[in-house]
């Protein structure tokens, strides 16, 4: 199903963290942080990974960038020479030329910038370590990048401590863009920002995508933000994907009970829409002790006997639409009405 347009195609990605106990550090169990996840991202497209803490969305994103070594699976990346490379199998040195084509925007605008380097050094570092241009050329490029993220060029010699959270996030974006990447992984890029600043960053990311034909893998827990940035959304629950669909379809007509509950739980900024919420019982399952069958069944109000024993698989129910639920064909679920 990959085409020329596909930038990234992930298949059967797994990341297990061993649980070690005792003096001899013996492995006594596995945390299945990511368990058999597959998806693709096209050029110029945003795919959002959503889910609650512990669902594996962040681990997935770090595996793709090889900040974490995946346990199994293939991560096919289409390079700028139009070659497909499996990132998962590369060594450190083989990986380095690919790094520049996949970059990351971080969640915490405070810890993601080295406080001891100037803005010029921070944004210029990817250029420097990849041997691109001399000092003057690099400074020119940094100035251009500051224009792109709408910060005054005069700020170049300042240190991060002089900037607000929103400005720092712009600096982080400029650094990610320095090497003209094709894919940007954005891990909760606006969740640490104030509401009035969030909107600026979201708009900036949308603009940059249109202008530079970037692909985003957008990791977020806030469904309102997700709706504003994504073309498609993948919902994760305890290491597995439960539903993938285009943004409008997923919000309007979810097909997985967890998606339904998630959508229902989002507070709507309108007091006239105080709808009856579906309040889920219990807590997100512990990924080191995943319930048998469908991991969501203990909290699912539609669960039947089959859900307790048999693990559902992600199956395609319509073009561009995958759901992992035994009862997908019988249930009619509620989305958000807009």
């Amino acid at each position: 199903m990959t085409t020329e347009q596909t930038v990234l195609s992930v298949e059967g990605l797994k990341k297990y963290f061993p649980i070690r106990r005792g003096l001899l550090r013996r492995v006594v169990g596995q945390v299945k942080a990511v368990d058999d996840v597959s998806f693709t991202i096209d050029r110029g497209e945003t795919l959002s990974l959503v889910g609650e803490s512990g669902c594996g969305k962040t681990t997935t994103s770090r595996c793709i960038l090889r900040a974490i070594q995946p346990t199994a699976g293939a991560i096919q990346f289409r390079t700028d020479q139009n070659r497909e490379v499996d990132v998962a199998g590369l060594t450190r040195t083989e990986l380095r030329p690919l790094r520049r084509q996949m970059q990351m925007i971080f969640q915490d605008p405070y810890s993601s910038l080295n406080p001891r380097m100037t803005i010029a050094d921070i944004i210029g570092e990817p250029l420097l370590v990849n041997g691109m241009g001399n000092l003057a050329a690099r400074r020119n490029r940094v100035a251009e990048l500051l224009d792109v993220v709408q910060l005054p060029r005069a700020y170049m010699n300042r240190f991060p401590h002089a900037f607000s959270g929103g400005q720092r996030q712009r600096i982080g974006i400029a650094r990610a863009l320095a090497l003209n990447p094709a894919l940007i992984v954005a891990d909760e890029p606006v969740s640490a920002l104030d509401v009035s600043v969030q909107a600026q960053i979201i708009n900036l990311m949308l603009e940059l995508q249109d202008r530079l034909r970037l692909s985003y893998l957008f990791v977020a827990h806030d469904l309102s933000v997700v709706k504003h940035v994504s073309h498609r959304v993948a919902v994760m629950y305890v290491g597995k994907m439960v539903e993938v669909a285009s943004t409008s379809t997923l919000f309007r007509a979810p097909r997985h009970p967890y998606t339904e509950a998630l959508l229902s739980a989002v507070p709507v900024p309108d007091p006239r829409q105080r709808a009856k919420r579906i309040v889920l019982e219990g807590e997100v399952a512990d990924p080191s002790r995943v319930p048998p069958g469908c991991a969501f069944h203990p909290r699912c109000r539609y669960a039947v006997e089959r859900c307790r024993v048999e693990t559902p698989t992600l199956e395609q129910i319509a073009p561009n639409r995958w759901v992992s639920c035994h009862r997908v064909r019988e249930l009619t679920l509620q989305g958000v009405v807009s």
């Binding site: 960038l65 900040a67 380095r96 790094r99 520049r100 996949m102 970059q103 990351m104 971080f106 969640q107 915490d108 810890s111 993601s112 910038l113 080295n114 406080p115 001891r116 570092e125 990817p126 370590v129 990849n130 982080g172 650094r175 320095a178 090497l179």
Partner: peptide
């Protein structure tokens, strides 16, 4: 995260230690 950022930018281990970690 800024160490991860340097790694993802392709910085070598030596650069990460001496440019980022030691000054910190």
């Amino acid at each position: 995260e800024f160490i991860t950022a340097a790694e993802l930018a392709g910085a070598s281990q030596l650069r990460i230690i001496f440019r980022h970690m030691v000054p910190s």
